[in-house]
Design a protein around this nucleic acid. Sequence first.
DNA 1: CCAAAAGTGTTATATTTACACCCATGC
DNA 2: GCATGGGTGTAAATATAACACTTTTGG
Lengths: 243, 243
Amino acid sequence: MPTGSVIAQNINRWITEIHNSYKTAVSVDCVIFGYDEDTLKVLVSKCDMPPFEREYSLLGDIVHADETLDEAALRVLVAKTGFTDVFLEQVQAFSAINRHPLGRVITVAYYALIKIDDAHLAHLEQDSDLQWLPVEALSSLAFDHFEIMHICLEKMRFEMRVRPIGFNLLPQKFSLLQLQKLYEVVLGFPLDKRNFRRKLVRLGILEQLDEIESSVSHRPARLYSFDEAAYQQKKIAGFNFDL
Amino acid sequence: MPTGSVIAQNINRWITEIHNSYKTAVSVDCVIFGYDEDTLKVLVSKCDMPPFEREYSLLGDIVHADETLDEAALRVLVAKTGFTDVFLEQVQAFSAINRHPLGRVITVAYYALIKIDDAHLAHLEQDSDLQWLPVEALSSLAFDHFEIMHICLEKMRFEMRVRPIGFNLLPQKFSLLQLQKLYEVVLGFPLDKRNFRRKLVRLGILEQLDEIESSVSHRPARLYSFDEAAYQQKKIAGFNFDL
DNA sequence: CCAAAAGTGTTATATTTACACCCATGC
DNA sequence: GCATGGGTGTAAATATAACACTTTTGG
């Protein structure tokens, strides 16, 4: 059992160490994925910090004293995209000592999934520094953001197979082939149409709507929506997407 | 395209924000799992910081200016356990604003898997503040460490089913029933002996040794070891433990 | 000879895969 | 009427799950 003075000594050591570490800043960076034109895209911003003026960077910011990491990530997302209905998931911290040119900045990466729609695109028009770039087209980003993007992409791909998060990239109402195409694009391999449909329908987490596609120049597809309530019920019994 | 002065302005804003955020410290906390006496245990330390003097805490420390998070976690682990051969995996950051009584401390949690052996236990004797406690027996820890432990436990359980990490908790040489028992204890449900053996052997990641158990009062079991090289080869072709 | 764990195969069931044609709509 | 994607079923192969007895060793 430590005596009182040992305790006081330990606390002093801690206070000293915490003060010493006050030269480390903490930030969040968001890898914001969207799906548009059968392509997986990332929202990036022109970088205004040397030596990366010619590069794009992820959207991020320093974490404020009065907010958690989740709150900071959501703040960045809302500020830049105007969205509040986003799927946001912490991935991991990046801490290479010289990853930031202005000093020690440890960053915590998140990935976000958002539905790209016309309202959103209109909102973006007002910020000419922001751009949706196809994931496949990216080969470098400012700082260590390319590595961060890549790791978040892998995590997202993995989780896509295990949890029903893909719906966050699609409109509320979608056809089964839209969904299949999304999986094919994100996972990077083709899926059998009949097997895919059977599997998804039998999972029981899709709600079949009394609605069909309109203004398509072929037989219109049935529309579905994700049944969150049904998923929550099934999740408890151990559940796997398994594609 | 931002002009030079806009860039300078932006950089100044960043520098200011980084300085403002210098009131946040970053720490690592390690959830160190060991397997002993058919029980999953966590290594904890008597807490010397009010108001948690009656509690145990995880092993952690402030991250130094010249080390990454991984390095800090490894440093903590080596300092406390004397081990260098450890499996260490980042889990996630915890950032509740008042999680630490001495100020804002954002912590990054790791879990570690180590082989508890006699040399290790002897090393521990010298630090009477350290203890191996059965995971099942824990109901509270200092700070938010119980929540951290719980989340790390869930992540470890999950990864145990997908990657061959369980071997890090066993001696180099083990019998199939030792391995099965480990899985049963960690996952929390019984496994069929014959199916388990068939599955593991057919995975092709175990090396059968020319050695058997000694000094057991029953028929001695064949010993195996984990074949890291074989695993690395198979992993590429997409691999799943699948228990 | 007894206790204790080692070791071993088969069958039924469920899951996964592969595969091809007719249907409804807009132009 | 034609181009386009919508929608449907079956059979073979594979994986999983359930289950009981004989063997070997130490004491």
